[in-house]
């Protein structure tokens, strides 16, 4: 279990409009931090949502998801890697 102080090892972005609500990511997620939303997206599916914490960045949801762009998985960089990535402009997001 993650401690309150520590950043999660990973996080995911779900493109709600690209999700077809098949639920395979929810089934696949080992730390069990995803679920299908009660609400609908514009095409009438219950999209998957990230519960907001607990992601390990393992990526199984990405590989379980049949849609090419519905899920993007991010992993936490070590401080050294983060510095390197910043200098190469590789990192695309910060928390």
């Amino acid at each position: 279990m993650k401690s309150e102080e520590k950043e999660d090892r990973g996080r995911i972005d779900i493109s709600t409009e690209e999700c077809k609500g098949c639920g395979l990511c929810v089934e696949a997620c080992a730390p069990n931090v995803m679920q299908l939303s009660d609400g609908f997206n514009s095409r009438g599916y219950h999209p998957a949502v990230y519960l907001g914490s607990g992601c390990t960045g393992c990526g199984v949801c990405f590989f379980a998801c049949p849609e090419p762009g519905a899920i993007t998985v991010f992993t936490l960089l070590s401080p050294a890697k983060a510095a390197e990535a910043a200098s190469l402009s590789l990192a695309t997001t910060t928390l």
């Binding site: 990973g10 960045g57 990526g59 762009g69 998985v73 890697k81 983060a82 990192a91």
Partner: peptide, 15 residues
């Protein structure tokens, strides 16, 4: 800092 580790492959169209 987070980096994208699993994302839409480049060999698939973005749109």
């Amino acid at each position: 800092m987070y980096a994208k580790s699993f994302q839409r492959p480049k060999s698939l169209f973005g749109e």
